[in-house]
Computed example of a mutant assay.
Amino acid sequence: MARKATSQDVANRAGVSRSAVSFVLNGRADGNIAKDKQLRILAAAKELNYTPNAVARSLQAQRTHTIGVVTDTIAGGPFAGELLQGASSAAFDAGYLLLVIETQNQEARENSAFTMLLDRQVDALVFAAESMRPHTPHPAMHGVPAVLANCFDPEGGLRSVMADEVAGGRSATQILLDSRHINIAYLSGPLDAVAAQRRTEGFDTAIAASGRPPIKAVETGWDINDGYAAAMRLFSDDGGHSPKHDRPTGVVCANDRVALGVMLACARLGLRVPEDLSIVGYDNHDPLAKTTVPGLTTVAIPHREMGEKAVEILLGELSNGIRKESSGTVLIPCPVVMRGSVAAPPLR
């Protein structure tokens, strides 16, 4: 294997000192190195295919160009894993690398993770949660630039990046209102979950703004069988054999899995989607939402954008060179994804 070129090789080729090479390749040549020498150094570096040693440059700048990311269970999940993809992409584009450790929701592993990352002198830290929830930041996060992603500090002491679930719940409901539905049902998910609470707030806000009386949420779980069971109670007669005449014409679901359960109940009862019932999901779960028949109209959780924004905040602080404690929450919009599961209500 050919030996990798060194800065001394570049200096020899250009006929300059090694320190001159360092000035040019580290962007400090103007005012220090004559223009003709700069051009010779750049040409020599290109001819030798020379790239500066990243470790040496990091030591000079007192930076490692790494960001430590601690997660609960995200790394092993394909859905919320998009958050890590967004963070990694934003970091890579800026010349940074992510060091990711999954704790599997174990406190001891979390403590060890932060210790190991600080031992490796990461420039900044992120804690990312799979599901929106409160999270008390590890003390290590108060010693370097840090941000929470998809979770929030209940004491408000550390900034966070989260999906705007209230606006998302409002958007999901507005889809049915804009399609002229009046008899609407809402399957909320478990109301002790932060995301469910915020989506419900959005649902209530949209209904109130339409001038209609409040609609009580039907509390469900997050899974297909929960949606199926709730739909059978709402849409069928007592025996579960035929649909009720006064059933809702549209339903907003806690997530896409619940929406799939509602679709299965419709198939059991002989109801067509969207001709007899319009369905709105939540999550834009890939591939579930786009492979149902018809495709599921839903609201997407911006996991990738949350990861990108978390890293963007940290890079901004690192580029300024100013360490500052910062609180508050950045809310990322939840976009609507229109497919085929919503239509105008049927005539009765």
Rank of each mutant, 00 (worst) to 15 (best):
E165D: 15
I322W: 00
A124W: 07
L148P: 07
K309A: 14
L99Y: 07
Q104C: 11
R3G: 12
Q104P: 06
A5E: 04
G168C: 02
E305S: 13
L331Y: 14
D246I: 06
F114C: 07
A56Q: 07
S327P: 04
N225W: 02
G340D: 04
V69F: 02
T220F: 00
R304Q: 12
F203D: 05
Y282D: 00
S326Y: 03
D226H: 15
A265L: 04
A75S: 15
I301R: 08
A310W: 12
V70Y: 03
A149I: 10
M306Y: 03
L234T: 11
G221S: 09
T291Y: 14
I67M: 02
I279S: 01
N26L: 08
G240E: 06
R257H: 14
S112H: 04
A140T: 07
N320S: 14
M306T: 04
A185F: 02
L25E: 08
E155Y: 09
A167F: 00
S179V: 01
Q60S: 15
A196T: 01
T64G: 03
A94E: 11
P137M: 08
R133P: 08
Q62S: 13
H285W: 11
A140Q: 10
Y96P: 03
F114P: 01
T51P: 01
A209F: 00
V252W: 09
K290N: 15
L264Q: 11
G211D: 03
T66S: 12
K290L: 10
G295W: 13
P190S: 11
R109M: 11
R199D: 00
V70K: 02
D238H: 09
N111E: 13
I322F: 01
L39I: 11
G340L: 03
R159E: 14
Q174C: 01
V10P: 05
A75T: 13
T71H: 13
V336A: 10
Y282R: 04
I33W: 01
M232K: 06
S17F: 10
R57A: 10
H241C: 14
R323Q: 13
T292A: 03
A61Y: 12
L331F: 13
K35N: 11
T291E: 14
C253A: 08
F127S: 04
T173V: 10
Y50K: 05
D192Q: 08
A300G: 01
G31A: 03
